[in-house]
């Protein structure tokens, strides 16, 4: 369905992502098998999730608005959390561009919340970035799926 050049390109991005992700994953392994509590396993799941998004954004680099936004968000995550803990929620103001047609307004609004950095994009940008984000996200899921299948063998 997709032309050959595209497949090759996404494959290399896939490899970049997989390499980074697996390296982080292996670092999280305990040197000796230790039985972890449910909370610890859950906390590690959270870290794995962040590692997955981090690897994905890094594999794409700063060429895309969504990956820039995601990297920025993850980089400032720790600081952001401490700030938000001190500050009451709802004080944060963001630049929001509005040029949506009324019929699609609610859907566009939802989309802006789902795509990293989507709140400050114009309509064209949002659609382009969404398309790219979806492809990357699907690749991410595929890699994680493959890994999980291989681990459980």
């Amino acid at each position: 369905m997709t032309p050959k050049g595209v497949t090759l390109k996404s494959n290399s991005r896939k490899m970049k992502f997989a390499r980074r992700f697996i390296c982080t994953l292996l670092q999280m392994r305990k040197p000796r098998p230790v039985s972890l509590s449910i909370e610890e396993v859950r906390a590690r799941g959270q870290r794995i999730k962040i590692a997955a998004y981090w690897s994905m954004a890094h594999a794409v680099g700063s060429r895309r608005a969504w990956s820039r936004a995601l990297l920025f968000k993850l980089r400032n995550r720790a600081r952001y959390q401490t700030i938000m803990r001190r500050r009451s929620p709802g004080l944060k103001t963001k630049r929001v561009i509005k040029n949506d047609t009324p019929g699609e307004l609610s859907q566009t609004k939802k989309l802006r919340q789902l795509v990293p950095g989507g709140k400050t994009m114009d309509m064209c940008n949002l659609l382009e970035e969404t398309a790219h984000y979806i492809t990357c996200l699907a690749t991410q899921v595929k890699v994680m799926q493959t890994l999980a299948d291989n681990f459980s063998k």
Binding site: V34, K49, L111, I134, L137, Q140, Q145, A148, F151
Partner: peptide, 25 residues
């Protein structure tokens, strides 16, 4: 599109949990 992104996010969540469990074994 929104539904698809949400389902992909959910899959990442599930797989992260699964990988965390598998990592122990």
């Amino acid at each position: 599109t929104c539904n698809y992104i949400r389902s992909l996010h959910r899959e990442v969540d599930d797989l992260s949990g699964r990988l965390s469990e598998l990592l122990a074994t």
